[in-house]
Design a protein around this nucleic acid. Structure first.
Lengths: 246, 246
DNA sequence: GAGTGGTCTAGACCACTGC
DNA sequence: CAGTGGTCTAGACCACTCG
């Protein structure tokens, strides 16, 4: 282990960032799994041969990156999509009326295919590589609101099946995490307004051609690796996409 | 000044947060104006009778809240909307093709009115209070992309006029800041898909009824005071609304 | 009470800016 | 060079959780 005391110069990286990188590696390789506690700050300070304050600053950044959750008196835990509080981190849809609604995910189809130009580019694959495609419906208060089409690299998600999805309780990302060892940590969404096509209109209970939100999401795991691309069509008759601008 | 050393208990607030509150007050009252430097950390430490580390932590939070910008070697500066880098903080529209485009704001109309139920509720006014309404067009690469209708409290923005807007170089929020002493620090956007009405369709050069993004924005100044409500219709033929999910 | 994260301090030194 | 923010340390003490 080569830790430079933040001196020297060109391309200088402070100590706490080097520590952060080391912690990131341990997270990525699964030394500590989602939901588990990582070692205490004091332990890590000894392990890396730095002061507790330096470890602390590294963990602070991991916490603001949502990779880790601190709990005073208990410890620091690897973030997990199992936590119900994480549910709305990636789904920005809220009822127009306000409040929260019971939601339900209904898998429709799941099949294997070969990557076309677009999905290959998005997922960092070559054209023709194996992919898995999933279609599903999202309901709020028993009413259909979103149709999603989700593209996944076959190499990782080859074992995904409709049964698996139907049986599973919890969010999709929670399933990805527990069954495929893939943790989503960041995503980009590109939003446009489009007319409803025939089949989506039927699924969502709106008339063909009526305006829908098209939300394309590219999700990333560790190391900025894109591991999911999806396109959702949102009915905004009774819901809207809520975004906070800081 | 009553600074409690972060001891005692119920409703305990750490020292650095008390310092943050004091700094916030100085920002709000305009003791330091947008673009100016605030006193050095050492000076503030003396002024408040705490250690530099504590002041530092308070400023850290102000910096992550985008209220203040740190520049190593120079000082800490009150954030300003004049800074061109701040332009895309509130406008999340990007070209589908990627890259940046020259943009231009074209004021269309500006008139005085009385607050209706909706604008009163949004702006925290009573029905019938004076408001100012502004309509404008946003172009990218000479092509119209957004029509905005902006509602402002008359008490603050009574002096706003079309001439003022036409003459002004820079963003709207930059003008609000320099001419009206109002700094926007946060906003919420609610996004839906709607069919284009006749006049918006003409302005945006799309056909009536074609899908547009409806972006309703409520903007807040210090103390969570809502001081602007606007509704924008975005043509997403060649642009999309980009959102990063952390 | 032991163990964890959270706060606060005082002081040393580094990196960057501008005179 | 002086002045600024940025890093790092060592140590004290507080707040919270759990057995």
């Amino acid at each position: 282990m080569t830790i430079v005391p933040a001196a020297a110069s060109p391309a200088f990286s402070p100590l706490y960032r080097q520590i952060k990188t080391l912690l990131l590696q341990s997270l990525e390789t699964g030394e500590w799994r989602p939901g588990e506690a990582i070692p205490s700050e004091a332990d890590l300070a000894v392990r890396f041969g730095v002061s507790q304050g330096t470890v602390r600053k590294a963990i602070d950044e991991l916490a603001t990156d949502n990779l880790v959750v601190r709990r005073q008196g208990k410890g620091t835990f690897v973030a997990t999509h199992d936590d119900p509080r994480a549910f709305f981190r990636f789904l920005r849809l809220v009822p127009l009326a306000g409040g929260r609604e019971p939601s339900k995910s209904i898998p429709l189809e799941c099949w294997r295919a070969k990557a076309g130009p677009e999905s290959a580019r998005m997922l960092g694959l070559s054209i023709g590589d194996a992919i898995v495609i999933l279609r599903r419906l999202l309901q709020f208060s028993e009413k259909p609101v979103v149709v999603d089409e989700i593209y996944l690299p076959g190499e990782i998600f080859g074992a995904l099946s409709l049964d698996m999805l139907t049986d599973y309780q919890g969010s999709l990302y929670s399933l990805f995490e527990s069954h495929f060892g893939v943790r989503m940590i960041r995503a980009e969404e590109r939003i446009r307004a489009v007319p409803a096509d025939r089949t989506s209109a039927e699924l969502l209970g709106v008339s063909e051609g009526s305006p829908l939100l098209s939300v394309e999401r590219l999700s990333f795991s560790y190391g900025n690796r894109s591991v999911e691309w999806r396109r959702g069509l949102y009915s905004t008759a009774e819901h809207c996409y809520l975004n906070e601008l800081g």
